[in-house]
Nucleic acid binder design. Structure first.
Length: 626
RNA sequence: GGCCCCGUGGUGUAGCGGUUUUAACAUACUGGCCUGUCAAGCCAGAGAUCGCCGGUUCGAAUCCGGUCGGGGUCGCCA
């Protein structure tokens, strides 16, 4: 029994890991005295031993130059037959990616031969001794220059791809970001607690990855989609402040910004309300950026908007706030329009909504046609554009001749004026409108807004426009299942005093739920959780679960809530998403050391692989032909 | 599960209005020359039956169908 043990005194727990040993010496690497990229003018005259990969070799017959690369950078090594015939002879054999160790003197480069592109460009290592540590086959793609390589080949040879300076830089950034998070939370007395990878399937959410049980035929573990219930149980367990860099698994089709196996910063606290969590998130993310990316611009304090305002104004719950382009619902202006696309849409209960692109009245027809096609691929039926031709002027003086639109003959000047006033468009601007049902219209408008932001180059690439979106509805009606479904997840708490509305008008219950968005990406999300069994059960019931089903699927959590569960809440932040925003990299696989393809394949290990008959038998599994 | 795009020497591309294409170019690769280059340069050489299968045709890298692989996207991702 652990309470009978006399536990050793550790440093008081809030100090654990906070102090790094001052006496910790730099790790000595036996085969080299310095990193290639560390050498500079201060080392001139020193005798150094370097080791790394042959980045490039330039053979002048007598004089041979080798760019030697290791993680720290690149330095030029000179092989001079007059100074060291032995090493010059060996250097003739060298090829790209061979691994060598070179000992020599750091010399200043002769005047006029300095290379400003290298951090070590003012010096060079003059080889006195060289040892080939390993040879290399010719790599399947360039490591010493940047060019577009088929991603599958890059992944198949990921260990070579990672040798590129950019990839090493990304992994270094990832390390620093995660380390910052750990240190930040450690300093605030959060405990890093690991939770199981093999747990149990829960019916909500994404498809689970299943692991067959050898000991229990026909039963399966599931990999966690997130440690949600576990961290809530840690709160019941009195941990009070928990965090984890947690791996999460969701068996859904990947996208450019989505992978099946992702990493989250998972945080949970007890005895807190929304404001405490929001303050923590803001402090964490803003100090992370200020410390690690001092050149990035932030808007602090982070702007906040309600879910409703975000949807109304930006047609999305994850707006890119680096640029304006605000939406307006013009349904009222066009309810009785002769233009059937508008009037019939509204008659069917749909909306007409759009925004104005400033100074774009002269936007080329061809590009407009492209945009029409673009929104169709995003689920809209079409796109109506209205260009208000002219340099400038008062909207009141708008004339029929100035209105350029495929719908112009159906739209009166008065209607266009109303639409323009509503969308904030003026003479010289271009108005985009989409008609359709609420959901698909907003989806297409979000895509169009981001597309126009890109085309018009409206977003400052150095800006990190963090913002909070709050006040999400707790539930939304789902026609397919004919039941309520949790908008975020079923554990979010209703706002204080609104619990009774769960019985009367579930749709109007607002949750203590928040997202952190940045540049159009959802980077984190969380909520204050329900900590009372009856309310949690009520939410599950609304979601169409039976009493028995609830106990079967969520019994562990519900039971725990009955044993003095403290009020608690937290958040989870996607590490890959954050790295994409921080680095500007659009491909999520580029911020992961060993990612899978969009079809869930690991080209390097060729996973998933087939299991042997013996393995299947042990697991009580039989495979069938499709 | 639907839709769109891509697949040509090691890599990246061109060729795709059907037959002088003996599949071109760059780079990488191999050999030679060369003492200050840094994407070194110069000379020479080797290397792809055009993802795979089938069809149309006198003739297919090229057109058609299927299939496999990759990317993007909708569904899905509480």
């Amino acid at each position: 029994m652990i309470h009978t043990l006399d536990l050793p005194e550790c440093v008081h727990f809030h100090n654990c890991g906070a102090n790094r040993s001052k006496t910790l010496e730099r790790l000595v690497q036996v085969l080299k005295t310095k990193g290639c990229g560390e050498i500079n003018n201060s080392h001139i005259g020193n005798n150094e031993t370097l080791a790394g990969w042959v980045h490039r070799r330039r053979d002048h017959g007598n004089l041979i130059f080798v760019d030697l690369r290791d993680r720290s950078g690149i330095i030029q090594v000179v092989f001079n037959p007059d100074l060291s015939p032995q090493s010059h002879k060996i250097s003739q054999q060298l090829r790209n990616e061979w691994v060598i160790q070179v000992t020599g003197t750091v010399n200043p480069r002769p005047d006029g031969t300095q290379n400003a592109d290298l951090t070590t460009g003012t010096v060079e290592l003059v080889s006195e001794q060289i040892k080939v540590l390993n040879t290399s086959k010719t790599p399947p793609f360039y490591i010493n220059e940047d060019s577009e390589i088929d991603e599958f080949i890059r992944l198949k040879y990921r260990y070579l791809d990672l040798r590129k300076q950019n990839m090493k830089k990304i992994l270094s950034i990832r390390h620093q970001v995660v380390k910052f998070m750990r240190d930040f939370l450690d300093q605030r007395e959060f405990l890093d607690v690991e939770t199981p990878i093999l747990i149990k399937s829960t019916p909500e959410g994404a498809r689970d990855y299943l692991v067959p049980s050898r000991l229990y035929p026909g039963k399966f573990y599931a990999l966690p989609q997130s440690p949600q219930q576990l961290k809530q149980l840690l709160m019941v367990g009195g941990i009070e402040k928990y965090f984890q860099i947690a791996r999460c698994f969701r068996d859904e089709d990947p996208r450019a910004d989505r992978v099946v196996e992702l990493t989250q910063l998972d945080v949970e606290m007890s005895f807190v309300d929304e404001e405490d969590i929001l303050a923590l998130i803001e402090e964490l993310y803003s100090s992370l950026v200020k410390t690690l990316f001092p050149n990035k611009k932030l808007m602090t304090p982070f702007p906040r908007m309600s879910y409703k305002d975000a949807m109304d104004t930006y047609s999305t719950d994850k707006p890119d706030l680096r640029f304006e382009l605000k939406m307006s619902d013009v349904s009222k202006s066009v309810t009785n329009s002769e233009f059937k696309v508008f009037s019939s849409t509204i008659a069917k209960g749909g909306i007409v909504k759009g925004f104005s692109a400033p100074r774009c009245a002269g936007y080329p027809r061809r590009q407009l046609d492209d945009l029409v096609e673009f929104v169709k691929t995003k689920g809209a039926n079409g796109l109506i554009w209205i260009a208000l031709a002219g340099e400038s002027g008062d909207l009141d003086n708008l004339t029929v001749e100035q209105i350029k639109s495929p719908a112009s003959k159906f739209l009166s000047v008065e209607t266009v004026k109303n639409i323009a006033a509503s969308t904030g468009g003026g003479i010289g601007d271009l108005i985009f409108l989409i008609a359709g049902d609420d959901k698909s219209t907003n989806l297409a408008l979000e895509a169009l807004r981001n597309e126009m932001g890109r085309r018009l180059d409206l977003a400052d690439p150095d800006m990190l426009a963090f913002a909070f979106v709050t006040d999400f509805p707790l539930l939304e009606w789902e026609d397919d299942s004919n039941s309520w479904t949790a908008m975020h997840h079923p554990f979010s708490s209703p706002k204080d005093g609104t619990e009774h509305m769960l019985n009367t008008s579930p749709e109007s219950v607002i949750a203590k739920q928040y997202d952190l968005v940045c540049n159009g990406v959802e980077t984190a999300g969380g909520s204050i959780r329900i900590h009372q069994r009856n309310i949690q059960e009520k939410v599950f019931e609304l979601m169409g679960h039976s009493k028995e089903g609830i106990q079967e699927q969520f019994g562990q959590l519900l039971d725990a809530l009955e044993y003095g569960a403290p009020p608690h809440g937290g958040f989870a932040g996607g590490i890959e998403r954050l790295l994409m925003v921080l680095t500007g990299i659009n491909n999520i696989r580029d911020v992961i050391a060993f990612p899978k393809t969009q079809t869930g394949v690991d080209p390097l290990f060729q996973a998933p692989g087939i299991a042997s008959e013996g393995q299947l038998k042990e697991l009580h599994l039989k495979t069938t032909e499709e």
